[in-house]
Design a protein around this nucleic acid. Structure first.
Lengths: 140, 140
DNA sequence: ATCCTTGCAAATGATTTGCAAGAGT
DNA sequence: ACTCTTGCAAATCATTTGCAAGGAT
């Protein structure tokens, strides 16, 4: 089991109850926007303020605990930091799912960066479309 | 030479001077944020309002003339609609450059989508790092 | 005990809207 | 002529900030 307190302390951040609830909620959702996150944590900790959510998101992104996932036409979502992967972004329901990145693709992008003398630090591959679930809904 | 008036009319939009200046500026910059775009068009047409810029960006994105490029930690940039390509996003200077997408990569992503029953409509591959130019600046 | 974090309220910044006047077809 | 578009000002929404009180180490 992942220990949020440890993750926070290793990043130089105090392990407050609010932060652990934020991390737990982000983990359960996989990808979540600031508003959704605030609404969700309110259920568990009704006195948290939106300013605290903002401050902590910024701090945890800066410290590499979280990653921002910007999305066309919507507000960014946030996820826990993890190995490189592909995002399937559903333009119907807004859901974002992770899929493993294929080595071949990763190699091509790494090679491209080298050829271009581009000092690669992070990659984001986002596929936009309609997820299986939403297609089935429309069909009915 | 591209004719912006034609592009606009074919998209069902009137070819106003303001819109053509917007498209011309976006094309010259390649990728540009709303603020930069407004500042730049002001030089050519000093009475344009920021509201007009916003309204037109929204309209032209809806009509497929423009594409939004969301960027981690910054405001979105906009580009003219063009064939799929990769973005090299410099985290130092903020510049965005296009590179051709390799067929192999495109095939892998298309295949992945099919396997997942994901109805793919658009893809964005963004590589973040430090561009050649900024690396040279640091070295000096 | 110390320093960092929280929550509140206010400030700022970004984006959207309504509407009358003007421009495109 | 008709309809869509513009520019302005106001309204709304999103995000950030300052500060006193509370919590973590």
């Amino acid at each position: 089991m992942t220990n949020y307190a440890t993750i926070l302390k290793e990043s130089g951040l105090k392990a407050t109850f609010q932060r652990m609830q934020l991390l737990d909620t982000i983990d359960r959702y996989g990808h979540i926007s600031i508003d959704e996150l605030y609404e969700e944590v309110l259920k568990v900790y009704p006195t948290i303020s939106l300013a605290t959510v903002y401050k902590n998101i910024i701090l945890m992104v800066e410290n590499g605990v979280l990653v921002e996932v910007p999305i066309v036409g919507k507000k960014s979502k946030y996820e826990l930091h993890k190995d490189d992967h592909i995002h399937l972004v559903c333009t119907e329901c807004g859901d974002v799912e992770d899929r493993p990145i294929i080595d071949e693709t990763e190699n091509i992008l790494t090679t491209l960066s080298k050829n271009e003398h581009f000092n690669l630090t992070k990659q984001q591959i986002n596929l936009y479309g309609i997820c299986k679930h939403c297609q089935e809904k429309v069909a009915s």
